[in-house]
Design a binder for these strands. Structure first.
Length: 498
DNA sequence: CTGGGGAAGGGGCCC
DNA sequence: GGGGCCCCTTCCCCA
């Protein structure tokens, strides 16, 4: 089991500077493995909501392995920035059969993509990384430490806080253990049994109560190495921003914060913001949200290189299109009717999260199964916003609202949908003239029953339309719809491209 | 005012 | 019987 020494720092366990990251110089295939490394290497110490790095190390896939020029020992791995949640994570830290630390690329990493690492479930348990509980999840992008009430926007930021930084969590944990039967007063030591039942952070409870002294980590050779590497691998195209413009760096998801423009004359690196995450998919500027516009597949939000101008994560989601125009209309359509969810705040949308291929499955499948297959007495819990669903399928569809995964496409206009119901609703819009909702007073044809009711209410308020009449109409409508639906059901099957 | 999408709840079918 | 899924409907928000 892990010991204090694993977190107390040593020449073998330096704390990588927070301003250094690792990016891929070439495409790196999924399942690529790096390691092994000593278990003592800490991961996630630098986890925060708004990371900023000023220089990067570049690695590449060569001869069937991941490597960095000039670093035969692969010590660059310590500079990989921690992922803030599962969806921006592309590298997984795990223990191999010899209980040594290894890294595995859980997704293929594209050229220029930043590596972001987090623990797999087993290693997280081993390292005492807490599992967030419903009480930690207060809402969309609101993850709160129950010990000190500090709030974070990302789950891993909170996990790192609880594990590495929160003294209060430690104190609470210690208190609970002391008052529990797991503390052997005679032997003045912790018992092993029952610990998992004591603290909500079951794995956390297995840790020593000694808080690791983060400041004691003294990067030595790594820093020297970094200095060398920094000169070699630092992005040559890191140009400075103009006043209010965010400049894309060689199509990387690296954008200078407008608040801290890089001074090209300065030899000191200034912070830049990494946006490898979050953003809502953007419609191409040439299109609007009109349903019947052609949804150009090559300009789809998932294919178009989007450039971000966000200065604030995640409250503001400005998306820069290919012509440096900020698209904001589409993001406004990302609303939620969920109680407790701010409708004006777009949900947690990892725009640059590489959509998995069919083989990889949807983002849900990339989550640890324990996070979405477990059903509490109250229902299925969304790990993003804490919402409970009576059905697992309901949660599955809901998770797509967080991940942006839209596997269903309208065959007519190619518009993607995450919810098959919404796709069907949309498909009906293409069936012009087939709509069964017709105003009996003016003959206007409307698409939905809601439209007809709203139309009559506003345009013919004096007409004494008994509700039952509308319902009678609707029954006719419904029956015709049923026919249409039965037809469309077959059609839908063809339309749905999973 | 109208049209459209996002999101969610519930009924029902199939395996 | 339960799970997964499809489908309809409704509500809400926005342009």
């Amino acid at each position: 089991m892990n010991t204090d020494s694993e977190h107390s720092g040593s020449p073998m366990s330096p704390t990588p500077p927070a301003h250094v990251g690792v990016v891929a110089l070439t495409d790196i295939p999924t399942q690529a493995i790096v390691g092994p490394y000593p278990r003592t290497i800490p991961i996630g110490l630098n986890t925060c909501d708004k990371p900023s790095i000023s220089c990067v190390l570049e690695i590449k896939w060569k001869d069937g392995r991941v490597m960095m020029d000039g670093d035969p020992t692969n010590q660059w791995m310590v500079y990989i920035q921690p992922a803030r949640d599962r969806h921006e994570q592309n590298v997984e830290a795990y223990m191999d059969e010899k209980h040594e630390l290894c890294l595995r690329f859980i997704r293929s990493v594209k050229t220029s993509e930043q590596l972001l690492v987090w623990y797999n479930d087993e290693l997280a348990r081993y390292k005492g990384i807490p599992i967030l509980k419903p009480q930690n999840i207060r809402g969309n992008q609101e993850y709160t430490c129950t010990a000190c009430e500090k709030t974070f926007q990302f789950p891993n930021s909170l996990k790192a806080h609880i594990r590495f930084r929160c003294l209060k969590s430690r104190e609470d944990q210690q208190e609970k253990l002391i008052t529990s039967s797991a503390f052997d007063k005679k032997r003045n030591m912790w018992g092993r049994s029952g610990l998992n039942d004591i603290h909500p952070y079951s794995a956390f409870s297995q840790l020593s109560s000694v808080r690791p002294d983060v400041s004691s980590y003294k990067p030595t050779t790594f820093i020297n190495k970094l200095d060398k590497v920094e000169r070699i691998s630092r992005l040559p195209h890191m140009t400075h921003t103009t006043s209010d413009q965010a400049i894309n760096l060689s199509k990387r998801d690296v954008v200078f914060s407008t608040a801290s423009p890089i001074n090209p004359a300065s030899t000191v690196s200034q912070p830049i913001q990494i946006f490898n995450h979050i953003h809502t998919p953007a419609f191409p500027i040439a299109m609007d949200n009109t349903a019947l516009r052609l949804y150009h597949p090559f300009l789809s939000p998932y294919n178009a290189p989007t450039r971000m101008c966000c200065n604030q994560i995640p409250s503001v989601h400005h998306v820069i299109d290919n012509r440096d125009h900020c698209i904001s209309s589409y993001e406004r359509s990302f609303t939620s009717s969920s109680p407790g969810v701010n409708r004006h705040s777009p949900p947690h949308m990892p725009c640059n999260f590489p959509l998995p291929s069919d083989k990889q499955g949807e983002p849900l499948d990339l989550l640890p199964k324990s996070l979405y297959t477990s059903k509490s007495r109250r229902g299925h819990l969304c790990i993003y916003c804490g919402k409970l669903y009576s059905r697992k399928y309901g949660l599955k569809i809901h998770l797509r609202t967080h991940t942006g995964y839209k596997p269903l496409k309208c065959k007519v206009c190619l518009r993607p949908f995450g919810d098959p119901s919404n796709l069907n609703k949309h498909v009906r819009l293409h069936a012009e003239g087939d709509t069964p909702y017709k105003c009996q007073f003016c003959g206007k044809v409307l698409v939905r029953r809601r439209d007809l009711e709203r139309h009559i209410k506003s345009r013919h308020p004096d007409q004494t339309v008994v509700k039952s009449e509308i319902e009678a109409d609707s029954s006719t409508v419904d029956s015709s719809l049923e026919e249409a639906d039965s037809d469309s059901a077959e059609t839908d099957n063809e339309l749905i491209v999973a």
